[in-house]
Design a protein around this nucleic acid. Structure first.
Lengths: 158, 158
DNA sequence: GATGAAATCCGAGTCAC
DNA sequence: GTGACTCGGATTTCATC
C-alpha cells in the first residue's frame, strides 16, 4: 500500500470516491456513467484508488438487530498509569475484544473511549465484569448506555 | 423494507453476511463459492438479505487522511432542558451537520455523545464556536480530542 | 502518461425443472 | 435448491492524443 497522503486526487477521483462511498456495489459500467468517464478509465482509476489505500475496503453494513446486537454502549476508560507500556498493553488486549467496535486514545477526562455492541444490558454487564475491568491497567470505567442512535457511521463529508 | 428483526437467518445467510461485511465488492460467483452454495441460490439469498433490511447498504471506506479529514474528535453534549421537544430540536439540527459522523443519546453524564471528523484542530475550533454551541438547547460541551485511533469501525462480531 | 474504442471472456440475472 | 441459457459487464489490448 502506497502512502495515501501523497496521492493527488483530481475531480474524477473524488467523484469515484463519493459514489462508491454511497453505493459500494455499483458495477464498473454504472460507476463510469455516473462520473462521466469511459469504463476503461473508470476501472483503472478505481483500481488505483484501492492500491494507493484511498479506499481501505468495501463493506456491507449489517443491521445490528438482525444479528442480535441491539445494544450499543460507550465506555470511558481511565488507566492507573500513563506509561507507554501501559497504553500498549491495554491497546493490545482491546484489539482482541470483538465486541469493541471503536477504541480511541483521547485527551480529557478519560484515557480511552470505547464503542461496544452487545445483545442487551445483561450481556454488557457480563462483558464489563469479566472482560473490561480485567483489561491491563484499567483503574476505572464510566458507562454510557445508548438510548437512541440518532446517527451512525455517516459518510465522510468531502 | 421488511422488519429485519423477524427474519430468520440460517447458516448460509450468516456466512453471506459475514463474507460481504468483509468484502462487499465480491462478485456473486465468488461469494457463492465461499459460502458453498450455487450461484443462483446465492444470488437469491443475497437479494433477500437486502430486501429484508439485514444489509442496509454497501459502502466503500475512504481513508480520512486521503480526503483531508485527519482529525477525529468526540464531544459530550449537555442540553439545558430534558424535554422531548428539546431533544427533537437538537437531533434535527445535528442531522444537518455533515461533520458529525455519529450522534447518540446516552444515559450518564451527558445527553449526547458525538463523533466528529474535521481537517485539524483549527477546523474543529471553528466548528465548535460557530456550529456546535449554537445547536438548539446546548448548555455545555466537553471535547475529547482523539490522539490515536486504535480501532475504528470494526466489523460486527456475530 | 492517460484516454477511449473495440474485442474477448466471464459473471449476472432469469428461466424451467 | 439446481442447472442451463442469454445478455451485459469486467478486463485487456491497442491506437491515439
Amino acid at each position: 500500500m502506497e502512502d495515501s497522503s501523497k496521492a493527488v486526487l483530481d475531480r474524477v477521483d473524488v467523484r469515484i470516491l463519493r459514489t462508491l462511498q454511497a453505493e459500494g456495489r455499483l458495477t464498473n459500467a454504472e460507476l463510469a456513467e455516473r462520473v462521466n468517464v469511459s469504463p476503461a478509465t473508470c476501472h483503472r482509476r478505481t483500481q488505483r484508488l484501492f492500491e494507493e489505500g484511498c479506499i481501505t475496503g468495501v463493506r456491507a453494513e449489517i443491521a445490528p438487530a438482525a444479528v442480535g446486537l441491539s445494544a450499543l454502549v460507550m465506555v470511558g476508560v481511565v488507566l492507573d498509569r500513563s506509561t507507554p507500556e501501559s497504553f500498549a498493553a491495554f491497546e493490545g488486549a482491546v484489539l482482541e475484544l470483538k465486541d469493541v467496535l471503536d477504541c480511541n486514545l483521547v485527551a480529557g477526562d478519560f484515557d480511552y473511549l470505547l464503542k461496544i455492541r452487545v445483545r442487551d444490558m445483561a450481556d454488557f454487564n457480563k462483558l464489563h465484569g469479566q472482560k473490561l475491568i480485567a483489561l491491563p491497567g484499567v483503574r476505572q470505567t464510566r458507562t454510557f448506555f445508548v438510548m437512541k442512535e440518532v446517527k451512525e457511521n455517516a459518510p465522510l463529508p468531502f
